[in-house]
Simulated scan of single mutants.
Amino acid sequence: MNKKFHNVAVLVEFIAGSGLAIFFHWVLHYKEAAYTIFGIGILLSLVTYLIREEIEKTREDVLESYTHAHEITFAIARIEDPECQIRARELLSSSMRTISLLEQGFIPLEEMEYHLEGAKQMEQAFHSVKTVDPLSSGLDLRGALVNFYQAEQRARERGIRVSRIFIGSREELAMPEFQKILTALHHENVGVRIAFRDELPPIGAIGKNDTVNSLDFAIYDDRVVVDVYGKTGKYFGKKTARTSEVAKYLHLYDLIEHSSHAVTLEQDRIVPANDFMPIAA
C-alpha cells in the first residue's frame, strides 16, 4: 500500500509540474518559463521518487535488523505458561554467558572437546608448551586424558620443551599416586615445578579475572591457550588465540612460576629442591 501511495505521489507531482508548464505555455504564452518549469518539475519528481525509495529501503532494512535482533525476545514474550517462561529465561541467560565468552575471543568446550583440543594443540606445537595443573585433579590418566598424555610424550620426542607447574599442598605432594606420576615425569626430563597454594600471592595479584578464572590451563607456543572453565555449567573448558587474552595467561604463568619451586629426586621421592639446599656456614 505504501508503495502505491509513493507512486501516486510521484504521478501527482508530475501532473502538477506539467499542468503549470502548460498554463505558462498556452495561457500566458511564456514559452521559456514553461520549458523551465517543465524541466524543473521532472527533476523534482525524479529526486523525490529516489528519496522516497531510499527511505523505504532503509526502513525495511531497519525493521528487518530490529526483528532479527529481538527474535528471541519476541519468542519468549509469546510464551504464555509461567513455568515455561522461567525455563526459557534460564536458557537465554545461559546462552548469553556463552555469547559473552565468544565476544571475548573464547571458544567454549565440553569435556571431551577440551581434552581433544589439548591433544590437538600438543601435536601441533612447534616450540614450547607451558601448563599449570592442580595436583588434586590434573593427574587423572583415565579415559580421554590418555590421548593427551600420549600426545605430550610425542611432543617431547620431537624436541618440544614441555614445562609443568603443579599447584597443591605439601600433603598432596606426599601422596603416593602423585609421587608416582611426578617421578615418572622427572625421569622423562619434563620441566616439573611445584607451587604451594599457601605461597602463591593473593588471587588479585596473580591476575585472576573474568576470563582467567582457573589455575588449570596450558599455553601452546605462546599463541593458544586451553583453560578449564572455572564456573559450573555445560562447558568444561575454553580455548582462545586472541593475543590480548593469551598475554594475560602468559603473565599469570610467569607470576606462578616465580612463586614455584624446582624439584629433585631424593630417596625415590619428589621434593622441592630448595628443601635440601645446604645451609651456608
Rank of each mutant, 00 (worst) to 15 (best):
H187Q: 12
V212R: 11
D81S: 00
F24I: 07
K4T: 02
V212K: 10
E117W: 08
V228I: 06
Q179E: 04
V47L: 14
L91Y: 11
P202D: 08
T183P: 01
N2R: 14
I256D: 04
E103I: 08
L215C: 06
V226L: 04
S18A: 14
H115G: 05
I219R: 10
P134D: 02
N7E: 10
H187V: 00
F126S: 14
A273H: 02
G230E: 01
S95D: 11
Q121W: 14
T232S: 14
F236C: 07
L250P: 02
L252Q: 13
S128H: 12
H70G: 07
V62G: 07
H187Y: 11
S94C: 01
E157R: 12
I55G: 01
M175N: 07
I270H: 11
I203S: 14
I40M: 10
P176H: 04
E117Q: 13
I203W: 08
I107K: 14
K130S: 14
M96W: 12
P201E: 12
S94Y: 00
P176F: 00
F5C: 02
E13M: 14
L46Q: 00
L50A: 05
Y49N: 07
Y253Q: 11
I51D: 05
A281F: 04
G233L: 00
Q124S: 15
E111S: 11
V212P: 09
V226P: 03
E103V: 08
S214K: 03
H261M: 04
L250T: 03
L215Y: 07
R164K: 15
A151N: 12
I37H: 08
S45Y: 02
L145W: 05
G17M: 06
R154Q: 10
G17A: 13
H127K: 15
I165N: 05
A205C: 03
V129I: 15
L20T: 14
G233Q: 01
G19V: 00
E53L: 08
F74Q: 15
G230N: 04
S65T: 10
A174D: 13
M112S: 12
V146W: 02
Y249W: 06
H68P: 00
R158P: 13
H70I: 01
N2H: 09
L139T: 13
E83L: 13
A21I: 05
E53S: 06
R59M: 03
G39C: 06
K248I: 01
E257S: 08
Y35R: 04
G168R: 08
R193Y: 04
A88W: 04
